[in-house]
């Protein structure tokens, strides 16, 4: 029993220690962001790796998610004779929830894990140490551009996800199920509020982008420099990101849309 409590204590101490190290690391990244802005080429290259390469995954997923919502929503709504609300349903669920959340989850799997693995391997092959010895700060040269790229790419990807999803819903609803085209768009426009829905969705995706890239870059930087250590860090990135996204989503939704 005693050893159980000891282990519990050790685990939670370890958690706080990691959180502390992660926060210090985050502050270091923030401090080196000016050096990235002076050299936008580093940032552009990373937006390519983090954002552009996730583009097709996000667009295809968004299309199918929108189509599925339309299909499911149609059968539920038609029970109440409210098929006209399909556009609202698709757009609201995409813009408020699924756009930011699903694209962040996909982003964590696609770009987050790649970031961790890349930085972890750079650490394992002494590239980071080598940079330090060349008087180049790896946080400024390697981590900060990647972090900033994630922060910029995530809202773009989430917006694309939602937009493509709405189009997917349109193809299914109007094209396949024969809903009135004007109704699809006008109901949507009447019910989706720019500042309430679109802006809040955007804020969510910025926060998710921040947390996913932070976790990914930190895990890579903190990885034990062996092949096993890097593979564990990569797994942790995906798992922790998913937890963080879903937890934060609940909190943000409660703050933004709920009356709690």
């Amino acid at each position: 029993m005693l050893s159980y409590f000891q282990r519990l204590g050790a685990t939670s101490l370890g958690m706080f220690e990691r959180l502390g190290r992660g926060s210090v690391f985050f502050v270091n990244i923030l401090l080196s962001i000016p050096s990235v802005i002076v050299r936008p080429r580093l940032l552009i290259a990373q937006i390519y790796f983090v954002g552009v390469l996730s583009f097709s995954l996000i667009v295809i997923s968004g299309l199918f998610v929108g189509m599925v919502i339309a299909l499911q929503g149609f059968y539920t709504l038609s029970d109440f004779g409210a098929e006209g609300m399909l556009g609202v349903m698709v757009a609201a669920s995409l813009i408020r929830e699924l756009g930011p959340v699903v694209s962040a989850l996909l982003f964590a799997g696609r770009a987050g894990s790649a970031l961790t693995a890349e930085i972890g391997l750079m650490k394992a092959t002494e590239q980071l140490s080598g940079m330090e010895m060349m008087a180049v700060d790896p946080v400024a040269r390697i981590m900060a551009p990647r972090f900033l790229a994630g922060l910029i790419s995530m809202p773009i990807l989430a917006t694309l996800f939602s937009a493509v999803g709405v189009m997917g819903g349109y193809f299914i609803g109007v094209g396949l199920l024969g809903i009135d085209e004007g109704g699809y768009w006008s109901q949507m426009q009447a019910k989706i509020d720019f500042s309430q829905d679109v802006v809040n969705g955007l804020i969510k995706s910025v926060i998710f982008g921040w947390v996913v890239t932070w976790i990914a870059v930190f895990e890579g930087h903190d990885a034990i420099p062996t092949s096993e250590g890097v593979s564990r860090a990569t797994t942790r990135t995906v798992v922790h990101s998913a937890f963080a996204i879903l937890l934060l989503d609940f909190i943000l939704t409660a703050l933004m849309f709920g009356d709690i």
Partner: peptide
């Protein structure tokens, strides 16, 4: 490609604000 990607993001944002939401 990066420029194209960012531009597409803006187009999508424009679409969401003008066509989908009530901003217009």
């Amino acid at each position: 490609l990066v420029g194209f990607f960012v531009a597409l993001g803006f187009v999508a944002m424009f679409f969401l604000s003008m066509e989908v939401s009530n901003l217009s």
